[in-house]
């Protein structure tokens, strides 16, 4: 029970920290001091205090976008094992629910963007749904590899680090899947080199441009939901890359948090070292991600 409480606590509290760590890493890498690591928390609380402006063209869909985005991310988080601990909710086929929850969130975020009637937001949502079309198969190929290796249909047991077929069989496929999942993670969470969350050129953005018209608490929810999504997907990637356990369940929590922060640093490093790709190359990389995880499946055919 206490583990479930900790799980939910971490899920609710930790996501903005990752954003802070990424920002700090980038700043340090660029030779700046940068905002404090806790800056995202300040931003969120400020946003939740503010008033809201709604465009006259919008309807309930516009308001539903942030809500659904946050709710789905939260629920998805409940399905993922954090570290060596099993997820609060776990059943056969939960990975499908996991993937589809994010899809639901995407549906409403994109629809909310269209609700503004602005060309910019339309552009953003078009890009969002387009790129996810290619990200989804990559994700499912990854799931196939994990399910085959673990002989299980539930995320918790899939990611528990035990591979009945043997580590020798598992390792090559896992490497491919990890690479593929990392690309998917960067795309889905709008990180450089696929998207730039900080730019002000609306024409080049994906996710940020969709939420241009949101303000106040609604915008806060979007930021929070996005951070949570990053956190959750990061947790999956972490278990694929490093399915280690220390034996002591409390140490495992520590290891998990350290791992997540490490991942944040890694993302920060990637963002610092790479420039954003041109938009037309994004699909190419996504196809590459698909192929990587598909090769993962093919390797298992032996």
């Amino acid at each position: 029970m206490s583990h479930i409480v900790i799980h939910i606590f971490l899920l609710l509290v930790m996501p903005p920290l990752l954003l802070g760590v990424i920002g700090k890493t980038k700043a340090l890498f660029a030779g700046r001091i940068g905002p404090p690591v806790l800056q995202p928390y300040y931003d969120l609380s400020k946003l939740f205090q503010k008033g809201t402006v709604f465009s006259t063209t919008t309807t309930w869909v516009f308001r539903a976008g942030p809500v659904v985005g946050l709710a789905t991310a939260l629920l998805a988080g409940m399905l993922i094992p954090f570290g060596g601990h099993s997820a609060p909710v776990s059943f056969n086929g939960d990975m499908i629910l996991f993937a589809y929850l994010f899809a639901l969130g995407r549906f409403f975020t994109a629809a909310a963007a269209l609700d503004t009637g602005s060309a910019f937001e339309g552009m953003g949502s078009a890009r969002e749904v387009t790129f996810s079309c290619l990200a989804e198969p990559a994700l499912f190929f990854g799931f196939l590899v994990l399910a085959k290796l673990s002989g299980s249909l539930s995320l918790t047991t899939m990611l528990d680090g035990a591979f009945p077929l043997g580590a020798g069989v598992a390792a090559p496929s896992l490497v491919l899947v990890a690479a593929s999942l990392f690309i998917v993670l960067l795309v889905e969470n709008c990180r450089i080199p696929f998207d730039d969350p900080n730019t002000h050129l609306e024409l080049t953005m994906i996710h940020e441009v969709m939420v241009l018209d949101h303000s106040g608490p609604a915008f806060g929810m979007i930021l929070y939901g996005a951070a949570m999504k990053l956190f959750v997907m990061g947790a999956v990637l972490l278990r694929v890359v490093a399915p280690f356990e220390l034996g002591n369940s409390w140490y495992d929590w520590g290891l998990f948090m350290a791992g997540m922060l490490g991942l944040a640093v890694l993302i920060g490093l990637v963002e610092s070292m790479m420039a954003r790709f041109r938009m037309v190359f994004v699909p190419t990389f996504l196809v590459a991600a698909c192929l990587l995880s598909a090769f993962g499946v093919i390797l298992l055919l032996r």
């Binding site: 008033g51 402006v53 709604f54 465009s55 006259t56 063209t57 106040g216 608490p217």
Partner: peptide, 8 residues
């Protein structure tokens, strides 16, 4: 927080 409406 109060809300206002305006054009997009």
């Amino acid at each position: 927080g109060g809300s206002a409406s305006g054009i997009t």
